[in-house]
Design a binder for these strands. Structure first.
Length: 468
RNA sequence: GGCGCCGUAGCCAAGUGGUAAGGCAGGAGUCUGCAAAACUCUGAUCGGCGGUUCGAAUCCGCCCGGCGCCUCCA
């Protein structure tokens, strides 16, 4: 069984064969750093984190590049509003992104190229495009790509040039030869950040940076190019156009992979609609793992509905998993596979897991396999909480969850400043129960519950955990 | 107007030709002083209408509904 990936370019699922055996070059479009990121950005980063983790699990060595667009109109405008330099704003936002993605358990990319650090390569690229007649400089204005010179313009987004003009309702820049021509180099206005170039001071257009980064850092041709589905057109289309013009006809990326959008109240999460949940808000809810669980719960190409209901459902489901690793101590895990049905359940789960992930990263099916394993563990856990086979299975579940980027750990009740006091209350309550003073015992439980502390009684004493 | 995606039990969501995974919620049990947790049992013929086929949620056509892109967008 080999890995298949669905490819936006061909619209089909294809066997995955990297350019170089055992190695994967993956480039993922990151955010334009002008404002706080929302969970849509988080989803995209998470999806490719999951893909990367699975590729690594499969033994591939993954070179993962994620860019930052750190110069752009929106950054300049916002910086002006805030009264700081565009540089400073970008720097702050990048820092925030790094901190937040770490909290979301997204593995750091191998490299994080930025538009402003690729200027030389960008200028070189544009020069080549002009030389070959694929681009033109309008004196006193910008440099544009001459779209009509690219034979298969629209091949990724599956549209034709003339069909797009018909529906176009954009204010077309009069300097363009063709309405769909796009900017490669933007002439600087006063007080804007700019770099010297053969076409005067200016800055790169949006699309060219990615072409340049791939050229310089990844050798011009990559295995996987990722991003949100909203980037297919025009961004990725234009990237292809630029890169393939100078790339001697070979394709920019072998597999184009696009994730679906996060939806809030039935619509795509976006700033213009004002319907968004920021990553900061998500993290404040303590929702890093739960959000990942939600993302995993539907296929990466499909939209994810974010709402109270779906969040809550994911939280409950995930809690069943954390419950299943109760009492797990890695040091107690037997080194060899125990001869026990539970070990069979682990094997079966792993097999189903791999089969699902091999099939275009079908994470919902992978989750189902792990839910089955969690149930098998919980069954045994009730009978034999200390058994080696339980530890073995728990470790198996934890390992497979980790491949998806889920940190599966028992909620640690022993941390926090309040823990000793809660321990004390629980202990006293135990005594009340032993002397059959249930009214008082129940009151303690109810009032702790109101404070977010859940008490669970069992035959061998009471346990407590922090609820959510 | 063009291109594309989607419509599966109350909700979320797999399944792309052989009689519907999984999760959440609900119901009934087991356990418990009671709860909680866990476990067991429990629900759908797949938006509508036609067609192809021995057989379709799965292929084709039409219709209805939702969404995305065509402009900055993860």
């Amino acid at each position: 069984m080999s890995l298949t990936i669905s490819n936006t370019m061909t619209g089909t699922k294809e066997p995955f064969e990297p350019l170089e055996p055992g190695k994967v070059k993956m480039y993922v479009c990151g955010p334009t750093v002008y404002a706080e990121s929302h969970i849509g950005h988080a989803m995209s980063a998470m999806v490719f984190d999951i893909i990367r983790r699975y590729l690594e699990y499969r033994g591939y060595q993954v070179m993962h590049a994620q860019n930052f667009t750190d110069v752009d109109d929106k950054i300049i405008n916002r910086a002006n509003e805030l009264g700081i330099s565009p540089d400073q704003l970008a720097e702050d936002m990048i820092h925030e992104w790094m901190v937040q993605t770490a909290q979301l358990n997204i593995k750091p990319a191998t490299i994080y190229p930025r538009a402003t650090q690729e200027i030389d390569t960008i200028i070189e690229l544009i020069s080549k495009l002009i030389e070959s007649g694929h681009a033109y400089h309008v004196p006193g204005s910008d440099v544009f790509y001459r779209v009509s010179r690219f034979e298969n313009y629209g091949k990724l987004s599956h549209r034709k040039l003339d069909e797009m003009i018909a529906g176009s309702r954009v204010d077309v820049d009069e300097n363009k030869e063709h309405p769909m021509d796009f900017v490669l180099w933007k002439a600087a206005k006063e007080d804007e950040p700019s770099w010297e170039s053969p076409w005067g001071p200016g800055r790169p257009g949006w699309h060219i940076e990615c072409s340049a980064m791939i050229q310089r850092h990844l050798g011009g041709q990559i295995d996987i190019h990722g991003g949100g589905s909203d980037l297919i057109f025009p961004h990725h289309e234009n990237e292809i156009t630029q890169s393939e013009t100078v790339n001697c006809g070979c394709s920019l990326a072998r597999y184009w992979v696009h994730n679906g959008m996060v939806e809030l109240r039935g619509a795509k999460m976006s700033k213009s609609e004002g319907n968004l949940v920021t990553i900061r808000e998500l993290l404040e809810m303590g929702g890093a793992e739960i959000f990942r669980f939600m993302v995993l719960g539907s296929h990466y190409r499909s939209p994810v509905a974010f709402g109270e209901d779906t969040y809550d459902a994911a939280r409950r489901g995930f809690e069943r998993w954390t419950g299943a690793v109760r009492g797990l101590d890695r040091r107690e895990v037997p080194a060899s596979r125990p001869d026990h049905p539970l070990a069979d359940a682990v094997d079966q789960a792993r097999e189903q897991f791999e089969q699902a992930m091999d099939d275009d990263f079908n994470t919902p099916v992978a989750l189902a396999a792990l839910f089955d394993l969690a149930r098998a563990i919980n069954r045994e856990l009730a009978e034999n909480p200390e058994a080696p086979e339980v530890r073995f299975a728990q470790a198996g579940l934890q390992d497979l969850a980790a491949v998806l980027g889920l940190k599966l750990e028992e909620r640690d009740a022993s941390t926090g400043d309040s823990a000793p006091f809660i321990d004390l209350l629980v202990e006293v309550r135990e005594k009340l129960r032993q002397s059959r003073q249930f009214d008082l015992a129940d009151e303690v439980r109810d009032r702790l519950s109101a404070l977010g502390i859940v008490i669970e009684d069992s035959a061998d004493g009471s346990r407590w955990r922090r609820g959510s």
